[in-house]
Amino acid sequence: MFTLLLRLGGPLQSWGSESKFEIRRTEPIPTKSGVLGMVGAALGRRRDESIEDLKKLRFGVRADQPGILLTDFHMARNDKFPYITRRYYISDGVFLAGLESEDFDFLKKIEWSLKHPQFPLFLGRRSCPVTLPLVLGIKELPLFEALKKEKWLGKDKKVDRSKILISLENGSGILTRYLKDEPESYDPVHRRFTFRKLGDFYISLENKTPEHDPFKDLVEEGSL
């Protein structure tokens, strides 16, 4: 089993699941529909194209730095009347996301595409561009083990690393819940999402502080 790990972090991100109309909420962690949508954009998929291969990927998230909830509200106008919209965002959040598959070649294709995307990539909404590094590589590990073993990605030293949340698809954690973020179609005319079972776990990452090398990415890209 193989797992592709992604770092989802930036000034703002927003992961809606059921919000519509004037109030657009965000889930506290990245959604499967949002991340697979980003993968589809990287692959160059149109919204009305099939996503059957993407739906087979097992998905999980680790919340290294939950961030702060922000609300943006402003006046908008339709054909006749002005109205107020409220949109919710996660500020300064950092998450580790994993996509698990037995097909190494497919994960390798996704990895390459995320580094060379066909369409722009966003963290849930167009106003939330991704920050680098996005791709952390493919591990020859099951999803849960890969999420447990990866080093801590956060920067806020006040975060309690003895209680880091992992939300795992079809997992049997201390809390089982359902989230409507399983994509069936991204077609704007017939967008469809179903419920997905999640298991929540808490793990300790007290001894997994990353050693940051500011020149590492430059050297890897051949800039030095």
Rank of each mutant, 00 (worst) to 15 (best):
K158V: 09
W112D: 04
R62M: 12
L168I: 14
P120R: 07
P117H: 03
E52T: 09
M75Y: 10
L175Q: 09
V130Q: 12
G37Y: 02
L114C: 09
Q118V: 01
G60D: 05
S101C: 07
L123C: 05
L114V: 04
K55G: 07
E102T: 11
K80S: 15
S50G: 10
K151I: 10
A146H: 00
L134T: 01
Y83A: 08
V135T: 08
L165G: 10
G60W: 01
I90G: 04
K108A: 12
G173W: 05
K108G: 03
R47I: 03
D156K: 14
G98K: 04
K155S: 11
L43E: 01
G37M: 10
G60K: 05
T131V: 08
K80I: 12
S101L: 04
K115I: 09
I138R: 03
F119I: 04
K149Q: 13
D105G: 14
L121D: 06
C128M: 14
W152I: 08
L57W: 05
K108F: 01
A97F: 00
L175H: 12
G93Q: 10
L54Y: 01
C128R: 10
K109P: 00
L96H: 07
I166D: 01
K139D: 04
L99M: 12
A76R: 11
F73R: 14
T131N: 11
L136T: 04
E150T: 05
L132Y: 00
L114D: 01
L141N: 02
A42S: 10
K55V: 15
D53G: 03
P82V: 07
D160A: 15
E140S: 11
N78K: 08
Y83D: 07
K56P: 03
K151G: 12
P133L: 13
T176N: 14
I68F: 15
K158M: 15
E52I: 00
C128K: 13
A42F: 02
V130S: 12
T85K: 09
L57E: 06
F104R: 08
N78A: 14
V39P: 01
K80V: 14
E140N: 13
L165H: 04
D92S: 14
G137L: 06
L141W: 00
K109Y: 00
P117M: 01
W152P: 03
E100N: 13
D103N: 15
R46F: 02
K149G: 12
T71N: 13
I51G: 01
L175E: 08
F119P: 03
L141F: 00
F144Y: 10
T131I: 06
G124V: 08
G154A: 11
D48M: 08
S113P: 02
K115D: 12
A97V: 13
D79K: 15
F119E: 06
G171P: 05
K157S: 12
L70K: 12
I174G: 09
D72V: 06
A97L: 05
V130R: 06
R87G: 07
R161H: 12
E145A: 09
P117S: 06
G93S: 09
Q65K: 11
S127R: 00
R126P: 05
L99G: 06
E111L: 02
H116R: 11
L121G: 11
L153G: 09
